[in-house]
Design a binder for these strands. Structure first.
Lengths: 216, 216
DNA sequence: GTCTATAAGGGGATAGAC
DNA sequence: GTCTATCCCCTTATAGAC
């Protein structure tokens, strides 16, 4: 097999089967790590669900840790990308915060497994991610906090601690991915619908904007 | 060893060494399960940190699963107990919600490991807890939601969806336990102080009460 | 109650044929 | 690229002596 080749991010060429197999493995791995965490997941189970032998999967990803890091990396790049887009979405606090909250809820809806892998990792003390968070998330957060402090100085919103504002928005939006099982049980449903996420967004934007004293 | 005996919840008598050893094992187990989840934790590591051999620990808890269930059970009983106390704390919405939020933050401060074990369990799809949540948490939640709907009918607060209100309060308060590592990194600290929890409480109570249109 | 010994299986990872 | 075979460690759990 393998004669067609396709360019890749590092510039090297590689077979089309490698590209599609890697994508498939990463998708399955995300699912399994989300459910069982790094330690609970076995590469055997991931290979099984990806439709290949463990040995064959290890041909594509040389170790469990490498695979896990790739899964984490993919999620975080997606998040950072979406968060930067939100920065430039509007001018007024109301519109920007609204976009930020609804954007994060949408990510929870579309990528619940990625969010869960991230959550397991952080709860476990971020053994793989501490450095990455310091280097990438914190600068972004500090830029966002600075923006909020500016709004406060201009009298556009109540003088709250911007850090705790973001901790709350993160928690309240990601809970619809991470704690989806609990929410399903509370709402007596098998799975959350688009309408549920819409309601969550309505509630959160109302409470946050009004709670910060931002006029709509 | 073991001649002094002491009564226990099930009425049977047992040695004092059993009582103290069990308590010690449960405390350590909570710590290890919090960090590594059910699958990642090994009874060997728990026994080690508890200062005894694995075989000896298995004398007190016949299996890993039994030990894990006991840890979960302890946490949940504590939570339900505290949540019921909050129900009777005041009369007016402002005071009751304030107590509820500050009470949950205080639990995050005092029992971060319990919260983390619970979080791992829910993110993993609640394999051990689904039934318990349905039987215990949901009735309590529905009673609380009914109370909120009453306040709305009386015009005491904005007409929001009570379910999403509670999801948000749970997420925003538990994040200071579950995601403490991320928050520490964001605030550039080794650990969260009592003052940090106080600030979190100030922010949340302000935003939630004002955001719901509840006069202070 | 605590110890040594060991069963029985799963886990990640490698070697080498095809 | 994929397969069979295998190594070796770690894990849960039990048996039985003291």
């Amino acid at each position: 097999m393998a004669s067609a080749t396709t360019p890749k991010r590092n510039g090297k060429r590689q077979s089309a089967t490698r590209t599609s197999h890697e994508a498939n493995i990463l998708r399955v791995a995300e699912e399994v790590f989300a459910q069982l965490g790094y330690n609970g997941a076995s590469i055997d189970m991931i290979a099984d669900r990806a439709g290949m032998s463990k040995q064959n999967m290890l041909y594509y990803f040389p170790s469990k840790e490498v695979l896990y890091r790739r899964v984490l990396e993919n999620i975080l790049n997606l998040w950072l990308e979406k968060m930067q887009l939100l920065e430039h979405s509007g001018e007024e606090p109301a519109q920007m915060l609204r976009n930020y909250i609804l954007g994060k809820i949408e990510i929870s809806r579309q990528y619940p497994n990625g969010s869960k892998v991230f959550a397991h990792e952080i709860i476990s003390g971020a053994p793989f991610l501490s450095d990455f968070l310091r280097d990438n998330l914190v600068p972004q957060l500090e830029a966002d906090a600075k923006l909020v402090r500016g709004w406060i100085k201009q009298g556009k919103m109540d003088p709250v601690d911007p850090m705790h504002l973001f901790f709350t928005i993160w928690a309240a939006t990601q809970t619809y991915a991470d704690f989806s099982r609990q929410i399903e049980i509370a709402l007596n449903k098998d799975s959350l619908s688009a309408r549920d996420f819409e309601k969550a967004g309505d509630f959160l934007t109302h409470m946050v904007l009004k709670g910060l004293g931002i006029s709509l």
